[in-house]
Design a protein around this nucleic acid. Sequence first.
DNA 1: TTGAAAGCGATACCAA
DNA 2: TTGGTATCGCTTTCAA
Lengths: 338, 338
Amino acid sequence: MDQVNLKRLAKELNLAVSTVSRALSDSHDISEETKKKVLALARKLNYQPNPFARSLRNRSSKTIAVILPEIANNYFSVAINGIEEVAQANNYHVLIYITHESFQKEAAIVRLLLNGRVDGILMSLSGGAKDTDHLAELQKSNIPVVFFDRVSDTFDTIRVTTNNFESGYLATTHLISRNCQRIAYLTFSGDLSIEQQRMKGYLEAVQKHGLSTAEDLIVRCDTNAEESYKKIKEMLSRDDRPDGVFASVESLAIYVYEACAELRLRIPEDVKIIGFSNLRTASLLNPALTTITQPAFNMGREAARVLFEVLKKPHVRMEDNTIVLRSNLVERRSTAIT
Amino acid sequence: MDQVNLKRLAKELNLAVSTVSRALSDSHDISEETKKKVLALARKLNYQPNPFARSLRNRSSKTIAVILPEIANNYFSVAINGIEEVAQANNYHVLIYITHESFQKEAAIVRLLLNGRVDGILMSLSGGAKDTDHLAELQKSNIPVVFFDRVSDTFDTIRVTTNNFESGYLATTHLISRNCQRIAYLTFSGDLSIEQQRMKGYLEAVQKHGLSTAEDLIVRCDTNAEESYKKIKEMLSRDDRPDGVFASVESLAIYVYEACAELRLRIPEDVKIIGFSNLRTASLLNPALTTITQPAFNMGREAARVLFEVLKKPHVRMEDNTIVLRSNLVERRSTAIT
DNA sequence: TTGAAAGCGATACCAA
DNA sequence: TTGGTATCGCTTTCAA
């Protein structure tokens, strides 16, 4: 079957390729009559311009990339929803890449994108990444990047984030106001800027109230699920186990629930729990989980919106380049006074 | 800054463009010496071939599309994980499109892809779609399509699905064995093949045991969340309310929990619930939800695997073109005998 | 208002 | 083993 391209249309209409091209792009110097003829045939043959020829010629891919540490997580999947909505509105395509929290994968993916495959990148960093060469390369490449949620402190690009320090502080004081005396803090590697912000908030609140900041109250979980679960369970089995747990990452709160079930610890009687979480089912858990909830959809939408703003006028440098949205504390039974 | 392309490399090395191209693709008829020289310079200048020039020339995009009804849902996000893993292993890129259960959007997206932007498509249909013109166009376009989960009965392509009829039957008999007499069935529009399969299983089980199949036990929810919730709540408020509910879609099970909480109905004492669900937190709900769980990751992986099989040898027609994986019933407290 | 032709960057065929 | 050139499909400049 013959491809339908400009040449084909031109031949059937006895016109030049350039005329057909201009007619389709509604150029001013084409007569109404030919425009109509061209459009009619194009529709009849279901003409679709070849995207690669276009991209090659125009140096624009009409595509953005989203690089994420994971996707089976309500925060990120809702954020993608926001991103996709904006992209569709701008007639852009969205490429997805998942790093699975692997720094090597992240670097490899970024390098895949340096050659113009995408016009811009939305990115949430993988945990535990020390080396940032790939980010430096990105910055040199003139491809605009917007970080969201897990942003980079060291690179001067646009960021969409939440008030992590305040949220960390707020979550901790919430536990304290519920009579918790030994408050544990659960985090991933702790390397990410947002983890550090949240932890600073935790530490400041704990110190301000004269509570223990013993190192053994801080559990750093690596990406290995089993390992993390074991560490958490171990902490909850100790004699001096905490009476309050602040999970700075969604999945860790779930581990706490599972560990408590196994250890027959009652929530909130024996341990109170608060977690950063966008779980749809937080209110249906047993007991309902008190959460710090991030505006996932809006963060995705904002990040995409700013990216397209830059794509439309690349010469403009964003002055105030960090957009901070607010997370909400939603109080539920897991931190109720008993 | 000058682009690094073949021309540039050729000039700096005093070679022809074609020679450089062949050297980089490790062609047999290029001397080791020049290969080395070319590779060295390419690495030094960080040469990245232009993907669009390549795609234009080779008529291959190294990209697949995934079209989904929604993404903020554990089933689909885990399925994407499986898809992305296979795609990365094959050095392919993954475009994501979300239809939000809108038939119009689905059709528009499919039409965007008819022009060669992708080499293949993985697709899960949107609900309530009657018109299938866009699928017909797809089939004519020679772009291989693999349906997964929400497959099409009418189009003869490759399908990856689960044993929906049996699962529907099994879920229903499970409720019956837990002494349920009036079993409600919750579904979306009911237009999708998988919905019909599941419902057939439900009906057969109910009839076999001589229980009521009254129409008012079947609740068809449209895509509107509020509307769906109201319908479910209304059913649970009636005097002849069901004592067992089978939610054939994940989100509907959540509505049942929420409605029961509002109506002060106890699960499982007053109503027992089973649901198709891939919720990470099913076991932590109050009470833990008995589920039919689909192998989401494997379904994504299988679908992608078959797609790449076809992409590698397009002339081969798949004989047995439906792959059926098995869902599991996981019994939990929401269907416990009381 | 329309046509001819150059060029985007990579590949592959034909010559040498 | 290497070079020259046509080609993929589209856009755009220059000429007519």
